[in-house]
Design a protein around this nucleic acid. Structure first.
Length: 475
RNA sequence: GGCGGCGUGGCCGAGUGGUUUAGGCAGGGGCCUGCAAAGCCCCGUACGGCGGUUCGAUUCCGCCCGCCGCCUCCA
């Protein structure tokens, strides 16, 4: 029984799925006007893990995550670059999917584009107007928040205090500062779509209501996103659904910040780091482990230290994979708890699921995996081959369930120089020429290899790639 | 001003009213090894401060201090 924190109630509660054996998720995706940063990486990983865990439980999961390809930021950035908005967004969408691949995040089952749903949005806005909750002004169409029962549910704020902080435009025909725009009438030079209110484009908050309800249907299970989307974005999505009389998301899940030096990482503070640097150093797996090791609602501090810490943990998992020739199970798919891998440690599996069911306690789940790693080594050292295999295989399956790939067993070098050094070292060791053997080891190390002796001779593997420091691309 | 979160051993980061520990990293000692590496074993006796409740609190309550977030585009 999966329990998750629900922003609507502020409490952890059982997720009551709409249909047995199935799960429907809508996760707010990126606006593709710039390269993704660590925060995008975190929410993508968090919900990828949730999705995989649902799959692991044997559910048929429908995961929808949108691509916002029209909004003020897109228009502004495109103008600055002197390119068409569509050109800008298609370029950054490609960057986005590359980054997701680098993080081993599974592709959404559907990734709807806002621009493909403008027609449906116009219909929705028209219906809101018909229902008397939306009104037209000289610059657009707005939703009248005061007419929506329960507005402020997600923000956990009374209408009054929300109003106190709301932005007030100089020229404002809005009936309340909290009323938000559904349709923006076009200004010169902007991309436009036609509508009953003239040429223009939809406001941000409408696309997610239309696409989530359109693709997942009423009363879908989980709506997710980062914590900063709670207000106003999700509040406003919900307001539209309520005003339409539609049954919206049943469970609201939000993940915490990425922080830098204890402060929220944000573009306005200029303290954000791109995902590209991290991924260029092969840090995708390390970032996943880093994200897994803290609770999804807690802030995570991403620093050279915490990244290299995660890399060290990863090295421990990889070492087990090498020793037992474990195959990575999380790459493009995810294992299923009962059917695919019955031959794993049942008690460990139960504990893993108990942690995950408890509001996605991935730190607990990961701790359990590391205990298994130790147990597997210990069993192997004692010569208990079968038991060790079982434990190691359990690690592989559980890592797979978390989307955590394990580095493949052996490293094949195609490098003749390196191979020659290895062969010479084996020969030297056979002659018990320790001085030469050590010298050759030093040489391999200086070439970036970790050298280990094994019954079958010199074994090498790549030294940890990044060392954290420059993996973040800041100094 | 309104609402909310956090403060755990060198670092990261869980958790719990009391007996045996989360887990990882780093560090110390040992085993293994030609020497290493990897692995295994052992070790540090932590819970912001002050009161209160209690037989007993890091865990419950109050106050204080410190940090952070939301209320505005933001993952």
């Amino acid at each position: 029984m999966l329990r998750l924190h629900d922003t609507a109630t502020g409490a952890v509660s059982e997720v009551r799925f709409r249909a047995a054996g199935r799960a429907s998720l809508y996760v707010c995706g990126p606006t593709v006007y710039d390269a993704p940063h660590l925060g995008h990486g975190r929410f993508s990983l968090v919900f990828d893990v949730l999705r995989r865990y649902l799959l692991f439980g044997g559910r048929e999961v429908t995961y929808v995550s949108n691509i916002t390809d029209i909004d003020d930021n897109v228009i502004e950035r495109a103008r600055l670059r002197g390119v068409e908005p569509a050109e800008l967004t298609s370029r950054y969408e490609a960057v986005w999917w590359d980054a997701m691949a680098g993080l081993s995040v599974l592709r959404p089952d559907a990734a709807p584009h806002a621009t493909a749903y403008v027609g449906a949005m116009v219909e929705t806005i028209a219906e809101l107007e018909t229902r008397g909750v939306a009104y037209e002004t000289s610059d657009g169409v707005y939703l009248e928040v005061a007419k929506v029962p329960g507005y402020g549910l997600l923000a956990h704020q009374p209408l009054e205090s929300l109003r106190a902080g709301a932005r007030v435009d100089a020229v404002d025909e809005k009936r309340s500062p909290l009323d938000f725009v559904l349709w923006k009438k076009a200004k010169p030079g902007e991309p436009t779509w036609s509508s009953p209110w003239g040429a223009g484009r939809p406001g941000w908050h409408t696309e997610c209501v239309v696409m989530s309800l359109g693709l997942l249907g009423d009363g879908f299970d989980i709506h997710g996103g980062a914590i900063d989307l709670i207000f106003p974005h999700h509040e406003n999505e919900r307001a539209q659904a309520v005003a339409l009389g539609r049954d919206f998301a049943h469970h609201w899940v939000h993940n915490g910040w990425v922080t830098v030096d204890g402060e929220k990482m944000s573009k306005s503070l200029g303290n954000f780091s791109g995902l590209d640097d991290l991924l260029a150093k092969g840090g995708g797996r390390a970032y996943r482990l880093l994200v897994l090791r803290s609770h999804y609602r807690s802030p995570i501090e991403v620093t050279p230290e915490t990244v290299s810490d995660a890399e060290a943990g990863l090295a421990r998992l990889d070492e087990l994979a090498r020793r037992f020739s474990l195959v990575a199970l999380g790459a493009g798919s995810t294992p299923v708890r009962s059917s695919d891998h019955p031959e794993i440690d049942g008690e460990a599996l139960d504990r893993f699921c108990a942690s995950m069911d408890d509001d996605l306690d991935t730190p607990g789940a990961v701790a359990g995996i590391f205990e298994l790693v130790r147990k597997a080594h210990t069993a192997a050292d004692r010569g208990e081959a079968a038991g060790a295999e079982l434990l190691a295989r359990t690690v592989a399956v559980l890592c797979g369930a978390l989307g955590l790939d394990l580095a493949g067993p052996a490293v094949e070098t195609a490098d003749p120089v390196v191979d020659a050094l290895v062969q010479r070292r084996d020969a030297a060791r056979e002659r018990r020429d320790w001085a030469l053997a050590d010298a050759l080891r030093d040489e391999l190390v200086s070439l970036g290899w970790v050298v280990e002796d094994s019954p079958s001779g010199t074994r090498i593997r790549r030294a940890a790639a990044s060392g954290g420091d420059d993996a973040l691309g800041r100094g």
